[in-house]
Lab assay of single mutants.
Amino acid sequence: GKMTGIVKWFNADKGFGFITPDDGSKDVFVHFSAIQNDGYKSLDEGQKVSFTIESGAKGPAAGNVTSL
């Protein structure tokens, strides 16, 4: 299901970062391709987001990332 969290950091040049889930679980990798907006796909440190957990090739990653 949907989770919420805070963006820990995001490197716009490399197109990835990490989200710290509100439930205290392990930080989740986020790739820019998972960001659900029409414009420039980037996130800001400290931004609140909702997301799902998808299993990627390198382990769990955030999917369906939407800013709240």
Results as ranks from 00 to 15, higher is better:
53 I>A: 07
42 S>I: 11
36 Q>K: 15
53 I>K: 13
68 L>Y: 09
20 T>M: 12
42 S>H: 10
39 G>Y: 08
4 T>C: 07
2 K>P: 03
60 P>C: 07
13 D>H: 15
17 G>S: 01
1 G>Y: 15
66 T>A: 11
27 D>F: 00
46 G>H: 04
41 K>H: 07
6 I>N: 11
55 S>V: 12
18 F>H: 04
28 V>S: 02
25 S>K: 10
3 M>A: 09
59 G>V: 04
62 A>L: 01
1 G>H: 09
44 D>Y: 11
64 N>I: 03
8 K>L: 03
40 Y>P: 12
10 F>G: 01
37 N>F: 13
21 P>T: 04
15 G>C: 03
43 L>G: 01
58 K>N: 10
1 G>N: 10
33 S>K: 10
41 K>N: 09
39 G>V: 07
2 K>T: 11
10 F>I: 03
37 N>R: 14
7 V>P: 01
7 V>S: 00
68 L>K: 05
29 F>D: 04
59 G>H: 05
36 Q>A: 13
48 K>R: 13
11 N>W: 05
5 G>M: 00
1 G>T: 14
26 K>T: 13
2 K>R: 09
3 M>Q: 14
39 G>R: 09
44 D>C: 12
33 S>W: 03
13 D>N: 15
42 S>K: 14
1 G>S: 14
50 S>A: 13
35 I>W: 06
67 S>C: 11
25 S>D: 12
14 K>C: 06
44 D>G: 12
16 F>E: 10
33 S>Q: 06
67 S>M: 14
68 L>T: 10
37 N>D: 15
42 S>V: 12
66 T>K: 14
47 Q>G: 07
10 F>M: 03
17 G>F: 00
60 P>F: 09
63 G>M: 13
23 D>A: 06
18 F>M: 07
9 W>L: 06
49 V>C: 07
30 V>T: 04
37 N>T: 14
35 I>M: 05
67 S>T: 15
55 S>Y: 14
11 N>C: 10
18 F>W: 10
54 E>R: 14
21 P>N: 01
54 E>I: 15
61 A>H: 11
10 F>S: 03
51 F>A: 01
41 K>W: 05
48 K>C: 10
47 Q>D: 15
5 G>L: 00
50 S>K: 07
35 I>C: 06
29 F>V: 05
57 A>V: 14
15 G>P: 00
